[in-house]
Design a protein around this nucleic acid. Structure first.
Length: 604
RNA sequence: CGGGGCGUAGCGCAGCUUGGUAGCGCGUUUGACUGGGGGUCAAAAGGUCGCAGGUUCAAAUCCUGUCGCCCCGACCA
């Protein structure tokens, strides 16, 4: 049952999607949901087995949790809300609220709090390999982002932070082992913890130009992080100081109708995005208690970056030491912020407003050209923008002086944007960050006590007191790893599986299926190769040679053994590596073919 | 959730503007030739044209509604 197809389904775009469908590995059942045909299941099983072996070696125990669970569990941690529409939810016949697990922190913590009550039972690490459900806004690219997918999730439980760190390091190493064994080319990057929460996090990214995620790497120090997390090295202060510089011209207001994006505005005004100031308004949801006391009431944070840069909420939050959310346009307007057309001037004179300007935006002089910096920005009224904005002139006071006045701290500079290629590395002086694309196949988190404290999972410690259990969680997208392997290594003709996860190691192609001698040699070779520990598939279909070779290349079995008349006449068969695109393959004596295969597979 | 597009045979598509017998390629089945990179010839099977209404003597085609799917963006592991 290997239904191959000449043409890819019309809805497939990504190479892995097209090739896995064409090669008869998977078929779509509905949006974001796939079935694994025998070939696909073999690959998936091989990846699972590698994961299983490495998890076991790292001291984790396999178990299986249900995909179906009561929503009450998620309500304990507030994630029923946090997940929102991403969660598959429904009522059973009795009207009880249920969900299909997108991940299993609550389910396992519920089990553990019943089963574990003493520090003597810890540490523990439990994992499962199971189907997960996430009702993605937009499933895409076949197995790369599905609504149902296979995932390995592990959870560690420790009594102390030291214990967590040890468990985390062990998992980190296990992940390196897993992806190395799978033959994947990957980079480990620092990551934001995201909605799962916690204190530290790493992502394992398969390096691949078609990847969805952008990662930043420092070629010198080895530092790597995803764009959201990536720090930016110190940016030099202009010689004259931030904000200092003469105006580049008279403030020039323009009518800019129907320009919702920076790009549109730039096109309309004939200005480059890097000469725009982008101003994003946040409302403070929660601030530190100290500030709360000193300045009760609503606070606003105005973030200013260059038009070609993106504001990073995490960084703004960190610098302002408060929890933020994007301002509601109507509410902000009432306070004097015309969202979409806000300029830094809007912050002037407002109380309880903190303006943070990214260093690249806080420039008054264009050092390269040796003349005043030209800035365009919003005009603080609907459908209008201005040219020749100048920090010192247009803020109505000297921003530098304002910044130094501790009593009026509404103005500061800070690194608040996403890193982009060419930014200074945070770990090596004078080195520029490089941007790469990747596919996230693994993610590990230090959760701390987020779930245990929310769900009341405490154990008594040596000191006879109750302690929140310290948790970590560790995920591998098994089905996504399969797709990533294809994205990473394929060509126009098909897939090139790494040997460790190939559905079969050797494909024996019988040129004359009806021929008794050919059949005999095929059977004999298959037995030998199988006895040598390799997986063998025989293609004895009554097809044209061309079709067979095309299919062989498509399904991507690493080693091909061809039994044909030419060779048989001399007691030989032809062996060829899938990765070898040029040569015709070489003839070897039938007796040596097995050794040749073993050598080739072990060598990869 | 915004923008764009698509639902006609297992797969890929045409037909729709201007309503009138359901078409092509691949695949499948049968036979013959052929036999080292998707071969040739001949014959055959296979479709309530996504679904529901409406207009009409007549609807794949026009109108309304609805469902499903894909791509881009936003968002996200």
């Amino acid at each position: 049952m290997i239904p191959t197809a000449k043409e890819a389904p019309a809805d497939a775009e990504a190479p892995s999607h097209k090739l896995l469908v064409r090669g008869g590995f998977i078929r779509r059942v509905t949006s974001g949901v796939y079935q694994y045909l025998p070939l696909g299941w073999r690959v998936l099983s091989k990846v699972s087995q590698i994961v299983r072996e490495e998890m076991n070696a790292a001291g984790a125990s396999e178990m299986l949790m249900p995909a179906l669970a009561p929503t009450e569990l998620l309500k304990e941690t507030g994630r029923a809300e946090d997940y929102g529409d991403l969660l598959f939810r429904f009522e059973d016949r009795h009207g009880r609220d249920c969900y299909l697990g997108p991940t299993h922190e609550e389910v396992i913590t519920d089990m553990m709090r019943q089963a574990v009550s003493s520090y003597k039972q810890l540490p523990l690490n439990l994992y499962q390999i199971q189907t997960k459900y996430r009702d993605e806004f937009r499933p895409r690219a076949g197995l790369l982002r599905g609504r149902e997918f296979l995932m390995k999730d592990a959870y560690s439980f420790d009594i102390s932070l030291d214990g967590l760190n040890a468990a985390y390091d062990k998992m980190y190493q296990a992940y390196v082992n897993v992806f190395t064994r799978c033959g994947l080319d990957f980079t480990v990057v620092e990551a934001e913890a995201g909605p799962i929460g916690g204190s530290a996090s790493h992502e394992f990214m398969v390096n691949c130009a078609t990847g969805e995620d952008t990662i930043m790497v420092c070629p010198s120090s080895g530092y790597a992080a995803n764009v959201e997390k990536c720090e930016i090295g110190e940016r030099a202060e202009p010689s004259g100081g931030f904000f200092v510089g003469e105006p580049s011209g008279e403030l020039d207001e323009m009518h800019t109708p129907d320009c919702p994006s920076i790009e549109d505005v730039c096109k309309f005004m004939k200005v480059k995005p890097k000469n725009m100031l982008k101003t994003v308004v946040f409302k403070v949801v929660k601030q530190s208690e100290e500030e709360e006391k000193g300045y009760p009431g609503d606070w606003w944070v105005v973030a200013v970056v260059r038009g070609d840069h993106d504001v990073n909420l995490g960084k703004v939050s960190a610098i302002s030491e408060s929890k933020l959310q994007l301002a509601d346009p109507a509410e902000a307007k009432a306070f004097g912020f015309e969202i979409g057309f806000v300029s830094p001037r809007a912050a002037v004179g407002k109380h309880q407003t903190l303006m943070i300007v990214d260093p690249d935006a806080a420039v008054g002089m264009d050092a390269a050209k040796g003349k005043p910096m030209f800035w365009a920005t919003g005009a603080d009224k609907k459908d209008h923008h201005v040219k020749h904005f100048n920090w010192q002139r247009d803020l109505g006071k000297d921003p530098v002086a304002a910044n130094k006045d501790s009593a009026d701290c509404f103005f500061m500079t800070g690194s608040i944007r996403n890193a982009i290629e060419g930014d200074p590395s945070p770990r090596a002086k004078g080195v520029a960050l490089e941007a790469k694309r990747g596919i996230e196949v693994g993610h590990i988190f230090k959760l701390g006590a987020k779930y245990s404290s929310a769900m009341g999972f405490r154990v008594s410690g040596e000191d006879q007191q109750l302690h929140d259990v310290i948790m970590g969680c560790y995920g591998i997208g098994v089905s996504r790893a399969v797709a990533a392997a294809v994205e990473m290594s394929c060509d126009d003709d098909g897939i090139q599986w790494p040997a460790a996860i190939a559905p079969y190691h050797v494909l024996i192609t019988v040129m004359k299926p009806g021929d008794a001698k050919s059949a005999e040699v095929a059977q004999q070779l298959a037995q030998e190769i199988s006895d040598a520990g390799l997986d063998v598939l025989i293609d004895d279909r009554d097809e044209r040679p061309g079709s067979k070779f095309k299919d062989a290349d498509l399904i991507g079995v690493p080693m091909r053994v061809t039994i044909g008349e030419k060779g048989l006449a001399e007691g030989a068969v032809e062996v060829k590596l899938r990765s070898d695109r040029q040569s015709k393959g070489s003839f070897v004596a039938i007796g040596e073919a097995t050794a040749k295969c073993v050598e080739a597979i072990e060598g990869t």
